[in-house]
């Protein structure tokens, strides 16, 4: 931890000193300027509504993606014929870059929080879907046999056996999904909104304000970093009873 802090400090110092040469300060700004901007934003309260909007849209998008993603994954893992039906369509949608859908979303549902939530959900959905689907599909046959001899029908097998057995995979994919939802929301804000961190970046960039762009990036980075840590400990806590079996 100490060494990481040292490296960070060194890089910041190099940046501060290096940015003084020529016209680089215009493009790169300096750490002092960026810190100054961050302080100014938080004091004036300018940044909070934007950050709040991004977080709200991310959570909404993540919620939709988590629900639909795991449900689709469970349905497809439980029924090979359903999987064969949907797999080509899902793969085609997966291979399309989500950002190119943004103009379409604006066309369909206009500008505002709705297209942002949609893009956030879309970015998050595929990560959650594919991660969960693999785990749910490859649940050990011994669980499925056990379900069969205990008289479990389609729904009981899916929800009481398959879903908990794939728990660790689903948790891992949800973790990734949340990060993708956050980044998807920012992408959405960059094209289809007048609030949020994504909008802030685009607005600052068009105003030739490098310090603000970098300050916004710092905020986004800090939130992602915090999210990852939060999720890592949540996953550990949730997966502990499941992993205990493997360790025993």
């Amino acid at each position: 931890m100490f060494r990481h802090g040292f490296t960070l400090l060194f890089l910041l110092a190099a940046w501060q000193l290096g940015a003084g040469f020529g016209a680089t300060a215009y493009y790169l700004s300096t750490p002092v300027q960026v810190a100054d901007r961050l302080l100014e934003w938080s004091m004036s309260g300018y940044v909070w509504p934007h950050l709040l909007s991004t977080i709200e849209c991310s959570l909404a998008g993540f919620g939709v993606a988590a629900f639909v993603g795991t449900l689709f994954a469970l349905a497809m893992a439980s029924s090979p014929s359903f999987a064969r039906l949907l797999e080509p369509a899902l793969f085609a949608a997966f291979s399309t870059p989500k950002i190119v859908i943004a103009p379409l979303l604006i066309l369909w549902i206009g500008v505002g929080t709705l297209p942002v939530i949609a893009l956030s959900a879309l970015s998050s959905f595929f990560v959650i879907f594919y991660g969960s689907y693999g785990g749910l599909r490859d649940v050990s046959g011994s669980y499925i046999d056990t379900a069969a001899v205990l008289g479990a029908g389609y729904w009981t097998t899916a929800f009481q056996f398959r879903l908990p057995a794939a728990g660790p995979y689903i948790l891992a994919s949800l973790t990734q999904g949340l990060i993708y939802a956050f980044h998807g929301a920012i992408l959405g804000e960059m094209t289809a909104s007048d609030t949020g961190m994504g909008y802030l970046i685009v607005y600052s960039a068009t105003s030739m304000d490098a310090a603000s762009v970098l300050a916004a990036l710092a905020v986004i980075g800090a939130v992602t970093f915090g999210l990852l840590h939060l999720l890592a400990s949540a996953t550990r806590a949730l997966a502990a009873p499941l992993n205990a079996e493997a360790l025993a």
Binding site: S142, Y143, D145, T146, Q160, F161, P164, A165, G167, P241, L242, A244, E245
Partner: peptide
């Protein structure tokens, strides 16, 4: 079965 196959959760 030979392995108990109890559900660990």
């Amino acid at each position: 079965f030979q392995d108990h196959r109890l559900l660990p959760w």
